Amino acid sequence: MLPVLAGVALVGAGIWIYNELQEQSAAERERWRSKREEVERSIEWHEEQIENHLHEARLSYDFKVLIDMHYSCVKVADQAYSLLKDARKSLDKIGEAIVKTKEQREILFKRKKEATSPSDKKEIQEEITSIQQLRSSLFDDKDEIKKQRDTFQARVKDLNSKTHTLKISIKERTGTRGIEWYERLEARKASRRA
Protein backbone atom coordinates (compact mmCIF):
# COMPACT_ATOMS: atom_id res chain seq x y z
CA MET A 1 0.00 0.00 0.00
CA LEU A 2 1.31 3.44 -0.90
CA PRO A 3 1.61 6.00 1.90
CA VAL A 4 -1.01 8.74 1.71
CA LEU A 5 -0.36 12.27 3.00
CA ALA A 6 -3.36 14.60 3.18
CA GLY A 7 -5.15 12.65 0.46
CA VAL A 8 -2.08 12.50 -1.78
CA ALA A 9 -0.93 9.05 -2.90
CA LEU A 10 2.85 9.10 -3.01
CA VAL A 11 4.99 7.24 -5.52
CA GLY A 12 8.69 6.76 -6.14
CA ALA A 13 11.02 9.15 -4.36
CA GLY A 14 8.09 10.78 -2.59
CA ILE A 15 7.56 7.57 -0.62
CA TRP A 16 11.23 7.48 0.37
CA ILE A 17 11.29 11.13 1.47
CA TYR A 18 8.02 10.84 3.40
CA ASN A 19 9.14 7.63 5.15
CA GLU A 20 12.47 9.21 6.10
CA LEU A 21 10.64 12.24 7.54
CA GLN A 22 8.34 9.96 9.54
CA GLU A 23 11.26 7.89 10.84
CA GLN A 24 13.33 10.89 11.89
CA SER A 25 10.70 12.99 13.63
CA ALA A 26 7.77 10.72 14.49
CA ALA A 27 8.32 10.75 18.26
CA GLU A 28 8.74 14.52 18.46
CA ARG A 29 5.72 15.15 16.22
CA GLU A 30 3.56 12.84 18.32
CA ARG A 31 4.68 14.47 21.59
CA TRP A 32 4.01 17.92 20.11
CA ARG A 33 0.60 16.86 18.81
CA SER A 34 -0.54 15.00 21.92
CA LYS A 35 0.96 17.10 24.72
CA ARG A 36 0.66 20.67 23.41
CA GLU A 37 -3.01 21.16 24.32
CA GLU A 38 -2.52 19.49 27.71
CA VAL A 39 0.38 21.80 28.55
CA GLU A 40 -1.55 24.83 27.25
CA ARG A 41 -4.40 23.98 29.68
CA SER A 42 -1.85 23.62 32.46
CA ILE A 43 -0.36 27.01 31.58
CA GLU A 44 -3.83 28.60 31.72
CA TRP A 45 -4.49 27.03 35.12
CA HIS A 46 -1.12 28.16 36.48
CA GLU A 47 -1.63 31.69 35.22
CA GLU A 48 -5.01 31.82 36.99
CA GLN A 49 -3.46 30.44 40.15
CA ILE A 50 -0.67 33.02 40.09
CA GLU A 51 -3.23 35.81 39.79
CA ASN A 52 -5.34 34.33 42.61
CA HIS A 53 -2.36 33.77 44.89
CA LEU A 54 -0.87 37.18 44.23
CA HIS A 55 -4.20 38.72 45.19
CA GLU A 56 -4.40 36.51 48.27
CA ALA A 57 -0.76 37.31 49.08
CA ARG A 58 -1.78 40.90 49.63
CA LEU A 59 -4.11 39.66 52.35
CA SER A 60 -2.09 36.74 53.71
CA TYR A 61 1.59 35.90 53.37
CA ASP A 62 1.34 32.13 53.01
CA PHE A 63 4.95 31.43 52.12
CA LYS A 64 4.55 27.67 51.50
CA VAL A 65 1.62 28.07 49.09
CA LEU A 66 3.47 30.72 47.10
CA ILE A 67 6.74 28.78 46.75
CA ASP A 68 4.80 25.63 45.81
CA MET A 69 3.02 27.63 43.12
CA HIS A 70 6.34 29.00 41.87
CA TYR A 71 7.85 25.50 41.71
CA SER A 72 4.80 24.16 39.86
CA CYS A 73 4.97 27.00 37.31
CA VAL A 74 8.66 26.35 36.69
CA LYS A 75 7.93 22.65 36.08
CA VAL A 76 5.18 23.48 33.57
CA ALA A 77 7.48 25.92 31.79
CA ASP A 78 10.21 23.26 31.60
CA GLN A 79 7.74 20.82 30.05
CA ALA A 80 6.60 23.50 27.60
CA TYR A 81 10.17 24.26 26.53
CA SER A 82 10.75 20.55 25.94
CA LEU A 83 7.70 20.51 23.67
CA LEU A 84 8.98 23.57 21.84
CA LYS A 85 12.21 21.65 21.15
CA ASP A 86 10.08 18.87 19.66
CA ALA A 87 8.33 21.41 17.45
CA ARG A 88 11.69 22.85 16.32
CA LYS A 89 13.01 19.38 15.49
CA SER A 90 9.83 18.59 13.55
CA LEU A 91 10.15 21.85 11.62
CA ASP A 92 13.81 21.12 10.87
CA LYS A 93 12.96 17.65 9.56
CA ILE A 94 10.11 19.00 7.45
CA GLY A 95 12.53 21.59 6.06
CA GLU A 96 15.01 18.85 5.17
CA ALA A 97 12.22 16.88 3.47
CA ILE A 98 11.25 19.99 1.47
CA VAL A 99 14.85 20.37 0.29
CA LYS A 100 15.00 16.69 -0.67
CA THR A 101 11.74 16.94 -2.63
CA LYS A 102 13.12 19.92 -4.52
CA GLU A 103 16.33 18.05 -5.35
CA GLN A 104 14.39 14.97 -6.40
CA ARG A 105 12.02 17.04 -8.52
CA GLU A 106 14.98 18.58 -10.38
CA ILE A 107 16.39 15.10 -11.03
CA LEU A 108 13.02 13.95 -12.35
CA PHE A 109 12.67 17.01 -14.61
CA LYS A 110 16.07 16.20 -16.10
CA ARG A 111 15.16 12.50 -16.52
CA LYS A 112 11.88 13.44 -18.19
CA LYS A 113 13.66 15.79 -20.59
CA GLU A 114 16.08 13.02 -21.53
CA ALA A 115 13.44 10.27 -21.80
CA THR A 116 12.44 9.20 -25.27
CA SER A 117 9.58 6.81 -24.61
CA PRO A 118 6.12 8.34 -24.01
CA SER A 119 5.43 5.71 -21.34
CA ASP A 120 8.67 6.63 -19.53
CA LYS A 121 7.76 10.32 -19.72
CA LYS A 122 4.28 9.56 -18.35
CA GLU A 123 5.70 7.51 -15.47
CA ILE A 124 8.23 10.22 -14.63
CA GLN A 125 5.50 12.87 -14.79
CA GLU A 126 3.41 10.87 -12.29
CA GLU A 127 6.38 10.86 -9.93
CA ILE A 128 6.90 14.61 -10.46
CA THR A 129 3.22 15.22 -9.67
CA SER A 130 3.53 13.09 -6.55
CA ILE A 131 6.62 15.02 -5.41
CA GLN A 132 4.91 18.37 -6.04
CA GLN A 133 1.85 17.28 -4.04
CA LEU A 134 4.12 16.08 -1.23
CA ARG A 135 5.95 19.44 -1.24
CA SER A 136 2.66 21.30 -1.04
CA SER A 137 1.54 19.13 1.89
CA LEU A 138 4.89 19.61 3.63
CA PHE A 139 4.66 23.40 3.29
CA ASP A 140 1.10 23.34 4.68
CA ASP A 141 2.22 21.13 7.58
CA LYS A 142 5.19 23.40 8.29
CA ASP A 143 3.00 26.51 8.29
CA GLU A 144 0.52 24.88 10.70
CA ILE A 145 3.23 23.80 13.14
CA LYS A 146 4.83 27.26 13.00
CA LYS A 147 1.50 28.88 13.81
CA GLN A 148 0.90 26.49 16.73
CA ARG A 149 4.48 26.94 17.96
CA ASP A 150 4.29 30.73 17.88
CA THR A 151 1.00 30.81 19.81
CA PHE A 152 2.30 28.28 22.32
CA GLN A 153 5.60 30.14 22.73
CA ALA A 154 3.75 33.39 23.45
CA ARG A 155 1.73 31.63 26.15
CA VAL A 156 4.91 30.22 27.72
CA LYS A 157 6.53 33.68 27.73
CA ASP A 158 3.45 35.08 29.44
CA LEU A 159 3.59 32.32 32.06
CA ASN A 160 7.29 33.05 32.63
CA SER A 161 6.53 36.72 33.11
CA LYS A 162 3.85 35.94 35.68
CA THR A 163 6.12 33.41 37.38
CA HIS A 164 8.79 36.11 37.66
CA THR A 165 6.22 38.46 39.21
CA LEU A 166 5.32 35.70 41.67
CA LYS A 167 9.00 35.19 42.54
CA ILE A 168 9.49 38.90 43.24
CA SER A 169 6.27 38.96 45.25
CA ILE A 170 7.50 36.07 47.40
CA LYS A 171 10.75 37.95 48.02
CA GLU A 172 9.06 41.23 48.87
CA ARG A 173 5.98 40.07 50.75
CA THR A 174 6.96 37.09 52.87
CA GLY A 175 9.60 38.61 55.07
CA THR A 176 12.96 37.05 55.86
CA ARG A 177 11.94 33.58 54.65
CA GLY A 178 11.02 35.01 51.26
CA ILE A 179 14.30 36.92 50.94
CA GLU A 180 16.33 33.84 51.93
CA TRP A 181 14.34 31.64 49.50
CA TYR A 182 14.91 34.15 46.71
CA GLU A 183 18.65 34.34 47.39
CA ARG A 184 18.97 30.52 47.43
CA LEU A 185 17.03 30.31 44.16
CA GLU A 186 19.24 32.91 42.49
CA ALA A 187 22.39 31.18 43.81
CA ARG A 188 21.23 27.84 42.34
CA LYS A 189 20.55 29.52 39.01
CA ALA A 190 23.99 31.15 39.03
CA SER A 191 25.75 27.87 39.88
CA ARG A 192 23.99 26.10 36.96
CA ARG A 193 25.22 28.79 34.55
CA ALA A 194 28.83 28.50 35.78
Rank of each mutant, 00 (worst) to 15 (best):
D92H: 09
L138P: 00
R173S: 13
S169L: 05
T101P: 02
D86K: 05
M69S: 13
K189F: 10
S136E: 12
A87I: 04
A87W: 01
F139N: 08
A87R: 02
T165Q: 10
Y61S: 13
S136H: 12
K167L: 15
R149C: 07
Y81E: 15
S191A: 08
Q132P: 01
D140M: 11
R173C: 06
K89N: 12
K162P: 05
L66F: 02
V99R: 14
H164C: 03
R155C: 01
N160P: 06
T174Y: 06
I124Y: 00
Q148I: 03
E127R: 00
S137I: 00
L59P: 04
D86Q: 04
L83H: 06
D62K: 07
A77Y: 11
V65A: 15
S82N: 11
Q104R: 08
K142Y: 10
S60R: 09
L108S: 03
E180I: 13
R173L: 15
R184S: 12
G178R: 02
Q148F: 03
D68Q: 15
C73M: 05
K147Y: 15
L59R: 08
V65D: 11
K102Q: 12
Q125P: 05
S161T: 09
L91I: 10
K167N: 13
K100S: 11
T116V: 12
R111W: 13
Q79F: 08
F109N: 14
E103V: 13
D68L: 15
V156M: 07
E123I: 07
D62V: 13
S137W: 01
E56G: 12
D158S: 06
K110V: 09
E106H: 08
L83P: 03
L91E: 03
E127M: 00
K110H: 09
R105N: 11
K102G: 14
R155K: 14
D120T: 14
E144Q: 08
Q79P: 11
L91S: 10
E126Y: 01
F139E: 10
E103D: 14
E123D: 10
Q133T: 02
K157Q: 04
I170N: 03
A77R: 15
K100Q: 07
D143Y: 07
S60F: 12
K64S: 15
A154E: 06
E144R: 14
S161A: 05
Y71G: 11
S130E: 00
D68C: 12
E127V: 02
H70R: 13
H164I: 05
R149S: 09
K89F: 08
K122F: 11
G95A: 14
